[in-house]
């Protein structure tokens, strides 16, 4: 990496959690990964492989035990303070007392954007996620997919160059999920943001990603990376032979990592 701009650079990172009883859990061991600007990278692996932990380290929600992470050439802490990334979790995590619009505007409000600026941006985002008619609804009036769309809009509110997503579609049914995946592809093409996307689902990872990072547990580490270069990501891709090849490649890598024990906590659907 000589002067090449990198969105996220993870170098030889270790993460050890200390349990209350004084034990140690090795969540990540010697993990290295670079994410280029505008690149969509998925982290996939069975439960306990540290994929969510890795995302939390990049977001500076936890600190590394060893190694180094840089986000746009800065420390994760600085990147967090500079609001260089947007984030979305498995549970949409909308504030129930705020309307859809007010939820989308939350980060803008916290960072002191004036009312007009907030309104302009939330109008744009509401149009982007197709929920203009629901601006004044409260989250309890929305379906699961709508809530997740709002959460993604909120993550994009400040036009971050990096999106961190921890199984954002994990709680959705399969139909809604595919629909949301299509929307996410469109959103990413529009914004050009880099994405680090944590998922349990192989087809989801293959459909969305430029690269799929396969991880394995005890200790959490990267076992391999599958490069995918599809011409276009649309509904046709789901039926395409290249798509199935990608799915097979990722699945083989996952099974190899588990040494025939069969991947646990991974959806093969």
């Amino acid at each position: 990496m000589t002067g090449t701009p990198v969105a996220v650079s993870v170098k030889a990172v270790d993460k050890v959690f200390r349990t209350r009883k004084g034990g140690e859990v090795h969540a990540l061991s010697d993990v290295s990964l670079d994410v280029a600007p505008g690149e969509f990278v998925s982290l996939i692996g069975p439960s306990g492989c540290g994929k969510s932990t890795l995302m939390r380290l990049i977001a500076d929600l936890d600190g590394v035990s060893g190694g180094e992470i840089e986000v746009f050439g800065k420390s994760p802490e600085q990147a967090r303070k500079d609001q260089d990334y947007g984030i979305a979790f498995q549970q949409a995590g909308l504030l129930p007392w705020r309307t859809v619009r007010a939820n989308i505007e939350l980060p803008l409000e916290i960072h002191g954007v004036d009312a007009r600026g907030r309104k302009e941006r939330s109008d744009e985002l509401l149009a982007l996620i197709g929920l203009e008619d629901f601006a004044d609804h409260h989250p309890d009036q929305l379906s699961g997919g709508m809530k997740q769309r709002v959460a993604i809009a909120r993550a994009m509110a400040e036009r971050p160059r990096l999106l961190l997503m921890d199984e954002p579609f994990g709680a959705l049914d399969e139909m809604t999920r595919e629909h949301m995946q299509n929307e996410l592809v469109a959103l990413c093409e529009e914004t050009g943001a880099a994405v680090v996307f944590v998922t349990h689902s192989i087809p989801e990872a293959v459909f969305l990603s430029d690269r799929v990072v396969v991880m394995s547990p005890r200790p959490g580490r990267i076992t391999g990376i599958v490069d995918l270069s599809f011409a276009a990501r649309d509904e046709d891709l789901r039926e395409d032979a290249a798509f199935y090849e990608g799915v097979t490649a990722v699945r083989t890598m996952l099974h190899g990592a588990e040494a025939g024990a069969g991947p646990r906590g991974v959806e093969n659907r």
Binding site: D60, L106, P107
Partner: peptide
């Protein structure tokens, strides 16, 4: 508040 909400506010550097 849920841990995820607290994380969200931390991510906003609030």
């Amino acid at each position: 508040p849920h841990a995820a909400d607290v994380d969200l506010f931390r991510a906003y550097a609030a």
